[in-house]
Amino acid sequence: MQFSLFFLLVAAVTCADVGTQTKDAFVLAHKQPLSTYAVENMDFVLEYGLYNVGDKPAQKVTIDDRHSFPTNSFEIVKGLLHVHYEKIPAGGNVTHSVVIRPRAFGFFNYTAAQVTYYTDNENLHVTLTNTPGEGYIYRQREYDRRFAPKYTYFLIFFFIVAPTTLGSFLLFQQSKARFPNIVKKKTT
């Protein structure tokens, strides 16, 4: 009798444990720019991350971010803005990256991407990612002024410095030409 009582208690405990711990698939979707600066006509890399933190696999997962990068202001260089994954297992994660190129400069609001997935093949879940927020797309010239190699500046600096360096070198050459004997002596 005591044994059966113990058995029932164990059964009750395990049942309760399973009841509280079972969680559906729960996908966290993450959108993040990897490039530090967005510049017009230069590549801009975006990364999407999907993390399934639930206890069951998520099925038919899609990322759709076509609405946040309209093609009249962005050119898609590489990657897809609409992707589909058949299944993300429990505890698994997926990263997806896209390279785009802004066509114009100015402020731009990076909005959320939409992620949809199914749990148990029937319950549709709609998730929105985080919003990276408002960012500035630099003008090409502005970016060059800060980061491009400054060859013209070097050239101007060379012209400014020329009288003192080139001038003295020419003077040295002149005075050297006045002493031709030494060279002759040494060679002979």
């Binding site: 208690l9 009750a12 049942c15 444990d17 509280t20």
Partner: peptide, 18 residues
Amino acid sequence: TIFLLSTIGLLSVYASDV
């Protein structure tokens, strides 16, 4: 009595787990 005890146990476990 066994059933009574088991139900009490189950309830208590549920309560604590929640």
